[in-house]
Design a protein around this nucleic acid. Structure first.
Lengths: 156, 156
DNA sequence: ATTGAAAGAGGTTGACC
DNA sequence: GGTCAACCTCTTTCAAT
């Protein structure tokens, strides 16, 4: 991890990536900065390895997407605490629905949305800290259809 | 703006982009999803044009980059102008990220960095002159450790 | 809406200064 | 650290289904 300040070229690169981190090519940046494309790629690699560029994420309009990106987190709560914990789980940021299940040990099902997998791990940790033991966590993509309309408990 | 819910393929694509929006190729996603690369590219274009994928941004660790002053400037823009103003805000020297917020009146969030508070007031004035009403400004980090060399983004 | 092919642009590696 | 050249991958465009 280098601690050296960024020079003009580094800042130019970061600035260009801010506009479109997916489609802005190294050659494009190189043209603007007046250096070779290889140089830009080397700089980007250094910035990544130096912990300055830590990732590239899409900006997702979840509202337009109708909150379709979700996980189903299956938890176990002590029976006496179940209702109270389910209530508190609803207050964890990212959680959009909680279902209490009357039978079995996996008695609390939490539906959550997040912008990336870090978000989702954070939600899992938050639930754990509340006292909800996370026993399973499934990203809702190919596996579940029509997830947004509720869980089919028998399938789980 | 299509209002149709995302299907499994859309969700798989978005999920893959969450992990690395810059280096994850359409072909890679296509392999995982069991469809052709062309289909993935078509879907991504539709998600972009439908306002669901609104951009791709790098995650920057400004602390490691030795920047001193990072602020979050919360602004209000007239809805019809929001997108254009967000774009122009990105050109203000010192501004490193702009997020459009879909809900509420504080609908543009501007991240800016500078070497001292003069820099930051100047950035606030610039945004105001563009037509972005600054409603709040929060210092994110305030370590004055090293001298900071200004931006040359105007020379790009 | 999905697929595949051809051509061009972009990325990667390794040698060199 | 920066450049060049060869090789390979990805994207773009377009026609077909």
């Amino acid at each position: 991890m280098s601690e050296e300040p960024l020079d003009d070229l580094d800042r130019t690169i970061i600035y260009c990536l801010q506009e479109d981190a997916r489609k802005t090519s190294a050659s494009e940046i190189a043209d603007k900065a007046g250096v070779s494309a290889s140089t830009v790629r080397n700089r980007i690699r250094n910035l990544e390895e130096g912990g300055i560029l830590t990732g590239y994420r899409p900006e997702v309009n979840y509202e337009a997407a109708s909150y379709q990106l979700q996980t189903l987190i299956v938890c176990t709560a002590p029976i006496p605490d179940r209702e109270a914990l389910a209530q508190r789980a609803l207050e964890v940021p990212g959680v959009v629905a909680v279902r209490e299940v009357m039978t079995g040990t996996e008695n609390v099902h939490v539906e959550a949305i997040g912008s990336d997998s870090d978000d989702l791990s954070r939600i899992g940790r938050d639930l754990d800290e509340l006292g909800l033991e996370v026993v399973d966590e499934d990203l809702i993509r190919n596996e579940y259809e029509r997830a947004f309309h509720g869980f089919d408990v028998d399938e789980l």
